[in-house]
Simulated scan of single mutants.
Amino acid sequence: MVTAYFLLPLDGLGPQRPALSWTFFVLALALIAALLLQQIAHVLLDRPHARPGLVIPLLMCLTILVFATAYQALAQHPGEFIGLSTRLDSLYFTLVTLATIGYGDITPHGQTARLVAMLQILYTFIFLTAAATALSRQLRTAFLRRESSHRSSP
């Protein structure tokens, strides 16, 4: 996924085509949110054939790449960001925002960039935190099951 992020031609997104950019951004986040909620439900309902341990981390990575793509598209518009010019900068800013570190070397100055940064923070609090909690619950349950089956074996 990261390789695709760096190799895909994303020149069609940004200020040249704002309607397409916003549509892609909103639909991608909505789809990922729905898939994350589905995986959370699988964990809570203890569905035997679900694979949240594989799917949740992939969806979390995809979320990061969607936000990085949005920041890269916004950076093409003058005045939205200071210090953000490459895809690596966009990925870096996304991870710094996700980790709530905020070094200050890249800053959103435009209203749209600030809106997307706030959306990322809210999305992280709501969806990624719930998904990480479900993932840790699923891993704990799998560990306890394995532990009890080893104890019951002679």
Rank of each mutant, 00 (worst) to 15 (best):
Ala142Arg: 15
Arg17Met: 09
Gly102Thr: 05
Thr124Leu: 07
Gln76Val: 02
Ala33Tyr: 14
Arg140Thr: 15
Thr100Ile: 00
Phe93Leu: 15
Leu74Arg: 09
Leu8Asp: 13
Arg137Met: 12
Gly79Pro: 12
Gln38Thr: 07
Asp11Gln: 10
Leu7Trp: 01
Ala30Ile: 11
Ile32Ser: 01
Ala117Lys: 13
Ser90Gly: 15
Leu29Phe: 04
Ala50Pro: 04
Phe127Ser: 08
Ala117Leu: 14
Ala30Arg: 15
Met118Glu: 10
Leu20Ala: 00
Thr129Phe: 07
Gly12Asn: 01
Leu29His: 08
Thr124Met: 08
Gly102Leu: 01
Val66His: 02
Val26Cys: 08
Ala131Glu: 03
Gln16Asp: 14
Leu144Met: 10
Ala4Gly: 05
Arg151Leu: 14
Pro9Thr: 02
Leu84Ala: 08
Gln39Glu: 15
Val96Glu: 15
Phe143Ile: 07
Val43Ala: 07
Leu88Glu: 14
Arg151Asp: 01
Ser136Met: 15
Arg87Asp: 04
Tyr71Ser: 01
Thr86His: 13
Thr69Ser: 13
Leu135Asp: 00
Ala99Lys: 11
Ile82Val: 03
Ala70Asn: 01
Asp11Arg: 02
Ala33Cys: 14
Val55Ala: 15
Gly79Ala: 13
Val55Asp: 11
Ala142Val: 10
Ala50His: 04
Phe143Gln: 08
Leu88Ile: 11
Phe143Cys: 02
His150Val: 09
Ala73Thr: 00
Pro78Leu: 05
Arg87His: 10
Pro78Asp: 11
Pro57Gly: 09
Ala19Phe: 08
Cys61Val: 13
Leu62Gln: 09
Leu115Val: 09
Ala113Pro: 10
Pro9Gln: 07
Ile126Trp: 06
Thr23Val: 01
Leu7Val: 06
Val116His: 08
Ala4His: 07
Leu74Pro: 07
Met60Cys: 11
Ser136Cys: 08
Pro9Tyr: 05
Met1Asn: 03
Thr141Cys: 04
Gln72Thr: 01
Ala132Gln: 12
Leu13Cys: 03
Arg87Gly: 15
Pro18Leu: 04
Ala132Thr: 13
Leu144His: 10
Tyr103Leu: 14
Gly53Tyr: 10
Ala75Asn: 05
Arg51Ile: 13
Arg114Asp: 10
Pro18Ile: 07
